[in-house]
Computed example of a mutant assay.
Amino acid sequence: MEFLFNFSHYLLRITDPAPVALWEKQETLALWFIAIIIFVGLLLSVSLFVIYKGIQSKFQQKLRDQRIKHEHEVDLREATLFNQEKERKRFAQDLHDAIIGKLTILRISIPLGISQEQMDSYLQDCIDSSRQLSHDLYPPLLNETELTDQLCSQINRYKLQFNIALTHDKRCAEDFHSAVKLHILRIVQELCTNTIKHAHATQIDFHLRLTSNGLCIKYSDNGLGMKDNSIKGIGLKSIHDRILQIGGLLKIRNVNKGFSCLIVLKK
Rank of each mutant, 00 (worst) to 15 (best):
L133C: 05
I196V: 15
I127V: 12
T195A: 15
L160G: 08
I127Y: 03
Q203M: 06
I204G: 14
K181I: 03
I127P: 00
L142Q: 03
I155W: 02
D149T: 12
D125P: 01
D205C: 05
A201V: 07
F162G: 09
C126S: 13
T195P: 07
L123N: 01
I184Q: 02
L185T: 09
K181L: 03
A201Y: 10
N143F: 04
Q116D: 13
H183A: 04
C126H: 03
Q116A: 11
S178D: 10
Q124K: 12
Q161R: 15
L185G: 05
I127W: 00
S115V: 06
L141H: 08
G113Q: 05
R171K: 15
L137V: 14
S212R: 11
S129D: 14
L191R: 07
R107N: 09
N194H: 13
M119I: 11
Y138L: 08
K197P: 03
P139G: 00
S115Q: 06
S134R: 05
I155M: 15
Q203A: 04
L123F: 04
H198C: 06
Q150K: 08
N143T: 11
E144G: 05
D205I: 08
Q154P: 02
I108N: 13
A173I: 04
H177C: 09
G214T: 08
F176I: 02
D169L: 00
S109M: 15
Y122N: 09
P111R: 12
N163D: 13
S130E: 01
I155Q: 02
I110L: 14
L106T: 06
H198S: 05
Q203E: 11
I164F: 00
I187G: 04
L133N: 06
H135F: 05
A179R: 10
D149G: 03
D175V: 02
A201C: 10
Y122I: 12
R171V: 07
D120H: 10
F176Q: 02
L147C: 04
L142A: 08
S178K: 09
C152M: 05
V188I: 09
